[in-house]
Amino acid sequence: MNLLLSGLDTVECAYYLRPAAATSLDFDALRVKRETRFQSKSRDPLVVELGGMAFELSRGGTRSGYPFMISNQQWVIQFGEFNDPNFFVTFRSVALWHRGAKALHDSFLAWAESLGYLPARPEGLSRCDFAFDFHLPLVDFNEDNFITLTEKDSQHRKNRKVQTFTFGRDEVVLRVYNKSDEVNEASGKFWLHEC
């Protein structure tokens, strides 16, 4: 097998942060901004500045119960005053490939600290997609060739050829898949060809 490209493509992480004595994250002001934009019937994205960074503020809460969702080129951040964990972060693919997971994690914690939030307990990793691109005339491995403690695994095929191996369910999931196929068929992340 000749490995052409590999790396993390999705990372989702739950952060348990506590507000320090003073925090600059004003939940009421965010609610007012969001409601005002909603009432204006504007379709333009609502951009807010938090912690010295610009984010697009979602028009509503999330399906997972967070009242706020903001996003930029690095992260999609779901958060709420009373949620536990109070921050749930998806590291964006383009940022992972260009900066790396450790740098994004450190950058997120620095951003949160700039708002007055500090870690209350260790974060919890909930999703990690490892993408690979390889040149192999025939895939000569299967899920049994992976060493894992997970009880559940599955594979997805197209035209009788394996494209994705999935390990785990619900809380922790690892997906290993052919990134070139995924780019061409679904994501349109053609910037990966530059990596």
Rank of each mutant, 00 (worst) to 15 (best):
A95S: 12
A14V: 01
R43P: 06
Q73K: 06
V76E: 03
E49N: 02
L8V: 05
E81W: 07
L17H: 00
F108Q: 04
A186G: 05
G60Y: 04
G188E: 10
C13D: 02
N72G: 08
R43C: 08
Q155V: 14
C13Q: 15
A186R: 15
R34G: 04
F134G: 06
Q73W: 06
E171H: 15
G116Q: 09
G188F: 11
M1T: 06
E182H: 03
G80T: 01
Q74I: 02
P45R: 14
F165W: 15
E81I: 08
R127Y: 12
G7H: 07
R127G: 05
W111Y: 12
L149F: 10
A131K: 01
A131W: 01
F79D: 00
A14C: 13
A54H: 02
S71R: 09
D84M: 10
V11E: 02
F38R: 15
E185Y: 04
L17S: 00
G51W: 04
G52L: 09
I70F: 06
A20C: 11
L3D: 04
Y117G: 03
Y16H: 15
L5C: 06
F87N: 02
A14Q: 08
E113W: 02
V48W: 00
E143S: 14
T164M: 13
F165K: 09
V139Q: 11
L57D: 03
L46R: 01
L3K: 13
L174I: 12
S64R: 14
W111N: 01
E49L: 01
V176K: 02
F79R: 00
L4E: 10
E81R: 15
R43S: 12
P45A: 13
D106P: 01
R63A: 10
H156W: 14
P137Y: 06
F88E: 04
G100K: 04
R121N: 04
S114D: 05
S114E: 03
F132W: 13
F87Y: 09
R59V: 09
